[in-house]
Amino acid sequence: MIGSIAALGAGLSVIGAGIGIGQIGGKAVEGIARQPEAASKIQTAMIIAAALVEGAALFGVVVSFLGLR
């Protein structure tokens, strides 16, 4: 029971991260399309932002790990 609730929690945090990283990726691609010469800078910024969003999601996942067992 706890395991399935934990799975739900993990799933919810993944939804948030998915939306966030999707936004970041989309905007980054837009930015690169508008200014291809800034691609490398945008990529770095994108990866950092994605990592931060992903960090938030991973906190959720880890908390749901804590619920396991």
């Binding site: 880890v62 790990f65 804590l66 619920g67 396991l68 067992r69």
Partner: peptide, 8 residues
Amino acid sequence: MNPLVTPE
């Protein structure tokens, strides 16, 4: 505590 998140 889950062993996965327990640093040994």
